[in-house]
Nucleic acid binder design. Structure first.
Lengths: 337, 337
DNA sequence: ATGAAAGCGCTAACAT
DNA sequence: ATGTTAGCGCTTTCAT
């Protein structure tokens, strides 16, 4: 097992001091060209690599970004990670990932572990069970910048990156209207959830902007596959009054299409259906689902960029920004052209 | 911004030496109960936390596991990460994730970065463009244990964890036969890919074990959604000679069902279909797909366990193991009961 | 142009 | 029972 060669090793072998080696390696002007060449050539030969642990301790800087995420196995979140990873890597940072599993206690421990390891910054999305934010304040108090994505606490001033749910819902509904729909059903998430509320508002706004009277009967709380089956009767009963459906997420849209088609309703000829999310199954279902792309990768990239700005601008006092990413329409075959 | 309190700080305030503080904090028997109480109480009060950077350097041990994975946004791989994360966390380790993006050069850089950071071990799955393994040997030469999952090099002796593709295919085919199928089509991956070959062999073996004559016409190279559409004619032509289809992955199965149903063939009444993978869409498609679960989480857990064994058993020479995870059948509605 | 020494925070011989 | 010292690998003043 090969021992990692250190600056001291090089110094001893070359018969010079460690400080000279250190300087030579980083091209310090004081060092004579001859010494530099010698040291650099030798270092190369023995495959010298600085010990990151020692550097970290010395500089109190790790070039590592911490991530706290509710769950990794989820298309949206894994896309975010992927985006983070890309930008972080390009800037010379590593990523340390913690999964809270939607558990507040775990999130607290994760935050502490990242602090203990002196990560240079933290990107996080709150767990569903997090209502207290002392662990986050603790990070910030210790000078660790935090940027939130997707799920952020109102109580904390920090950079935040969101998808624009309102706009996404509006765009989706506009698309239905533009392709001729006039009576549009919305399958919604409960309105105590922010996304439920925002997407619902976007839907209503789009109707309004097109001079379509909003009909409260055309909103059903129904945001999971099972919900759709439970509400199948209600949906089918409305089927002959409507010509479009906007659902709060893709899996609801897909289940809805299945229920409708099973009952002889053709999509999009009789009813157009549009979802929200653009996960992998939007392409695989039948018919391929028109939907709104949630842009996880871009959210991850943006959040990381904001974090790096903060990490590298240590100078002045930082004014928190909130960035809103506008989702884009993915038109497939479940809506008319 | 709160300065992190150090052992030295505590020592100074309490008027004792740093070593006494250090010992008191870890309940060293030499320290008097009185001093211990004093130190521990004070440490608690000021929320003392050991600096992981200093510990890492001192012990040349980071309690961090490195992961190199081809891509994060992929159900199988993200499940593996999730499994890794669980076991690692329970054992007090953090995870550092690198995404090779199926790029050999990136993989080399990632390996080096993990080495520089002195991770205690590495879990990896090779990128598709990796044919040289010096970067991996480099890790091992420097005493960093490496465990592979899913994609491993034959040339390297190391722990490896795989899903048993052969067995999975056999189980799937057996299930079709057990539910009455006799003429089973296999939509296969190219046989130069290991999984293509192994799954194909499992299919043939199952036929054999049931005394069913293997018909070479009943294997079509077809392993993507687009492939299915391209081969739709061929598949439909065989439709009246067959009663079951085993596909090499789920998306192929789903596309096949769509083609068949569009042509009036009922599933599973006319033809049963079974896939391989059990990604999120197996539940969402219509009809819900019977398939073979690839057990990503379990693979991640097993691999991590093997790695931890190696990290912690530094004593004797290590004899590499290969672990094969047997996949399990997920029976849904695309096959008969 | 180079070297010696101190220090980042912690621990573990080695004193006493 | 406690303190002193040295050292993990590196950088950086401060000499020379």
């Amino acid at each position: 097992m090969a021992h990692q060669v250190t600056i001291k090793d090089i110094a001893k072998i070359l018969g010079i001091s460690a400080s000279t080696v250190s300087r030579a390696l980083k091209d310090h002007p004081d060092i004579s060209p001859k010494t530099k060449r010698m040291v650099q050539a030798f270092a190369q030969k023995v495959n010298y690599r600085p010990n990151a642990l020692a550097l970290n301790l010395r500089r109190s800087k790790t070039n590592t970004i911490g991530i706290i995420i509710p769950e990794i196995v989820h298309h949206f979140f894994s896309s975010v990670i992927s985006g983070i990873e890309k930008v972080a890597y390009a800037a010379g940072y590593n990523v340390m990932i913690c999964q809270s599993n939607e558990d507040y206690n775990r999130e607290v421990i994760d935050a502490q572990a990242l602090l203990d390891n002196r990560v240079d910054g933290v990107l996080m999305s709150l767990s569903k069970t997090t209502f207290d934010h002392d662990h986050i304040r603790n990070l910030i108090d210790h000078g660790i910048p935090v940027v939130f994505f997707d799920r952020a606490p109102n109580e904390i001033e920090a950079d935040k990156v969101f998808i624009d749910d309102f706009m996404g819902a509006k765009i989706a509904t506009h698309h239905l209207i533009a392709t001729g729909c006039r009576n549009i059903l919305h399958l919604a998430a409960p309105s105590h959830l922010l996304i439920g509320q925002r997407r619902r508002d976007g839907y209503i706004k789009a109707l309004e902007e097109n001079g379509i009277q909003f009909n409260p009967d055309f909103i059903i709380k129904c945001d999971t596959r099972d919900d759709v089956f439970a509400n199948a009767g209600k949906i089918l009963q409305l089927a002959n009054q409507i010509d479009g459906i906007f659902t709060v997420n893709d899996s609801t849209a897909i289940a809805t299409m299945q229920v409708l088609m099973k009952n002889g309703i053709r999509i999009p000829e009789h009813i157009s259906v549009i979802g929200f999310g653009d996960g992998p199954n939007a392409n695989i279902c039948y018919p391929p689902l028109s939907t709104v792309e949630q842009k996880g990768t871009e959210i991850g990239k943006e959040a990381t960029q904001l974090l790096l700005n903060q990490i590298e601008n240590t100078e002045d006092i930082y004014k928190p920004t909130t960035k809103t990413i506008t989702p884009v329409l993915r038109i497939r075959e479940s809506t008319l052209m």
